[in-house]
Design a protein around this nucleic acid. Structure first.
Lengths: 219, 219
DNA sequence: GGCTTTCGCTACGAGTCGTAGCGTAATGCC
DNA sequence: GGCATTACGCTACGACTCGTAGCGAAAGCC
């Protein structure tokens, strides 16, 4: 519990390296290098061992730190893996490709490329499964992974409305529902294709998906 | 490995109780009651403990059998949970509701109801995560869970084509791709809504989803 | 230099794993 | 009924992981 708070503070330091004395904190600061090494080691262990056989002792050894250091920063395996996997989604962007269809295809391909990584496959679904019984963990995933993706949907939608490709939706409540729906449809389809069907979400598949999403099955 | 084959044979016996001497097998037969008790106990443990804290020893105690009996029938936790969760999808059907939209809404609501069960939530995603590193497990999930769902898509599509709601697709390869795409979109969206967004896939959501799936975002 | 916090290390009890061995129970075949 | 065969319950086991405690040393801020 305490270590969880401390972790969040540390990550804040990591972002703003310049801050002199972070909120009146004295003593030896936590090693940012150790933090990075631990997360990298976690991803490495996910690739080699998978979720169930991953042990915190092994991660500590790989990272070159003591096991106790790991427990001081993360409450457990779940939280550690969430942070390790979350970094994979940092590069997710939505470049303007001129049309809604092209924008969707571009971002879906990015998303699919990340999900194709073995560390994302084995880690992400496992923590989502654990999160069904852990409210705090669900919130952690939402904040560090899901919301960043959803923001892209919001952005792409606004862009398409500006282009006139999508009708404006004045009622904010209805608009929020639509965004949630689109998000679940896009992310859900890619995840299901990649993890359950175990087939690559390649360009051909993405083209077909985008066509159905925009025009429906009727045509 | 041996026990896995034996398990499948046992399940066959369970279906056709009448068979006299099943393929020249001698000796004391496996208890079908024990099998049912174990799977029920597994679901119960999934609800109370979740995937990660579920132990085979605990399941054995709940089911009233010895731990060794469990290991004789299943290779491990993964295979056991797949079988336990698979039974939840037995009742999935596709009643004819007159139109493609109504058919989709009906089956999606059924699927959502199953996914809302805590034993499905915590169990299904966990084994899918494990299956990313285990080809045999992936095949087991495909055979006992996924294919049964996909058959509904195939059936609903044929029905809609007979009604004239969907255009016929002569090329079988292209048709198979379309079915796969639709399946990933439907199942993926419901799963993502239920497990990641952690919101109920209720009637209102299903209506919106069906509208987008059939007519696209454009309208 | 003094204060504070982190770090590496060792050690620990508790719990789980998957297996082996044994005697017993239940069936099919003769 | 007797025999072979297989499943069952039970006990015990070494190996491993867990999460924590305690200690001295290290690294920063005043």
């Amino acid at each position: 519990m305490i270590s969880l708070t401390a972790t969040q503070e540390l990550r804040v330091y990591g972002q703003g390296m310049q801050t002199r004395s972070p909120a009146g904190r004295a003593g030896r600061p936590r090693s940012a290098a150790a933090d990075a090494a631990i997360l990298a080691a976690t991803r490495e262990a996910l690739v080699e061992l998978g979720w169930s056989k991953l042990t915190l002792g092994d991660v500590a050894t790989r990272a070159g730190v003591a096991k106790t250091t790991l427990y001081r920063r993360w409450a457990g395996k779940n939280e550690l893996v969430v942070d390790a996997v979350a970094e994979l989604f940092d590069e997710l962007e939505l470049p303007d490709r001129g049309s809604l269809a092209a924008d969707i295809e571009g971002v879906v391909l990015q998303f699919a490329a990340i999900l194709a990584l073995p560390e994302a496959k084995s880690g992400l679904m496992a923590v989502v499964a654990e999160a069904t019984r852990d409210e705090a963990l669900r919130e952690r995933i939402r904040a560090s992974v899901v919301d960043r993706q959803k923001r892209l949907v919001l952005e792409g939608r606004a862009r398409a409305q500006a282009r006139g490709e999508l009708p404006p939706e004045p009622d904010p409540r209805s608009a929020a529902r639509t965004v949630d729906l689109i998000f679940d449809m896009v992310a859900g389809a890619v995840v299901h294709r990649t993890l359950v069907s175990a087939e690559p979400a390649d360009e051909e598949w993405v083209r077909g998906f985008t066509r159905v999403l925009l025009q429906g099955l009727g045509t």
